[in-house]
Design a protein around this nucleic acid. Structure first.
Length: 275
DNA sequence: CAACCGCCCTGGGAGC
DNA sequence: TGCTCCCAGGGCGGTT
């Protein structure tokens, strides 16, 4: 599923093909994504002036407004030649003046295509309350510490809360907690500053590694193989319940935390000493 | 406000 | 082989 690294990989992959091009037309085969697809008529003949990312949203800006594209958990964006035959789950095509098309495929339809008029896309309801970017200077242990005071929520849910920090999904949350030596269920408000420094560093390292791994598939992006490179990276805990910890060989345990499965090492990850 | 839960949807794997 | 069942996942929106 697309987490921040894959969305960034996608953004980088499509940017050279659509930036500076004008939108000539579009086809919506199935408007029933998470919300009805919004592509207003005024986008016709508009030039794409920026291709940006905010959290897991890809933003295509023009003089009249910005398209917000979210990939949900099964979506992908591809650049194809105009006339490319559409297959199952190819819900939206946007045609450009260079005779290429941007195609959204999304089997589970948890994604969306929305529009924000004007010059500031951040005004959109879906964007205005998002937390800090994990790969920006605003993100730090200090930020996590400050945001977590008086909160009893499990630290895993806390770092997956997009109002706190964007782009951390279930996989990277589990991996970051392993790396920082913290159990998923520890109350966010009981964790001291020094441990949050470690956790913030772990999140950044894991995301950067994944962006780099995604980058390995970038050169093939326009081709048929859209597999995200980061699946190839070694996961320490995610999906490894019942298997041996790569560090200490202890059997990894599965817990349900906030209705999401969470795997952790009972020996390497602690819930003690935060009182 | 914080916490919690239901829900949207389909593919894929397990079990029979 | 084919059926059914269940799970995975982000994140909004409503309720407690």
């Amino acid at each position: 599923m697309p987490e921040l690294p894959e969305v960034e990989t996608t953004r980088r992959g499509i940017e050279p093909h659509v930036l500076g091009q004008s939108i000539t037309d579009w086809t919506v085969r199935n408007p029933r994504l998470r919300w009805p697809v919004e592509i207003p008529a005024q986008l016709q003949n508009q030039t794409v002036t920026a291709v940006q990312r905010r959290g897991k949203y890809i933003l295509l800006s023009t003089a009249v407004g910005t398209l917000l594209v979210h990939l949900g958990m099964s979506g992908s964006l591809r650049i194809l030649e105009q006339g490319a035959q559409a297959g199952k789950h190819d819900h939206v095509d946007i045609h450009f003046s260079n005779h290429k098309l941007l195609r959204l495929n999304d089997p589970r339809r948890f994604g969306c295509v929305m529009f924000q008029a004007g010059s500031n896309p951040i005004k959109h309801t879906l964007l205005k309350n998002l937390g800090v970017e994990p790969l920006s200077n605003e993100f730090s242990g200090e930020h996590l510490f400050a945001q977590s005071r008086n909160r009893r929520v499990a630290v895993k849910n806390f770092i997956m809360d997009s109002k706190v920090v964007v782009g951390v999904g279930n996989i990277y949350a589990a991996e970051a907690l392993f790396s920082a030596g913290l159990r998923p269920r520890v109350a966010a408000g009981r964790i001291p500053r020094r441990v949050y420094d470690r956790l913030a560093q772990a999140i950044v390292e894991i995301l950067l590694r994944a962006v780099r791994a995604g980058g390995t598939t970038l050169r093939d992006f326009v081709g048929a193989d859209g597999n995200p490179g980061y699946f190839a990276q070694t996961l320490n805990v995610y999906g490894r319940q019942g298997q041996a910890c790569r560090t200490c060989s202890t059997t990894l345990k599965l817990q349900i935390v906030g209705q999401r499965s969470s795997v952790y090492c009972p020996k390497c990850q602690t819930s003690q000493g935060f009182s």
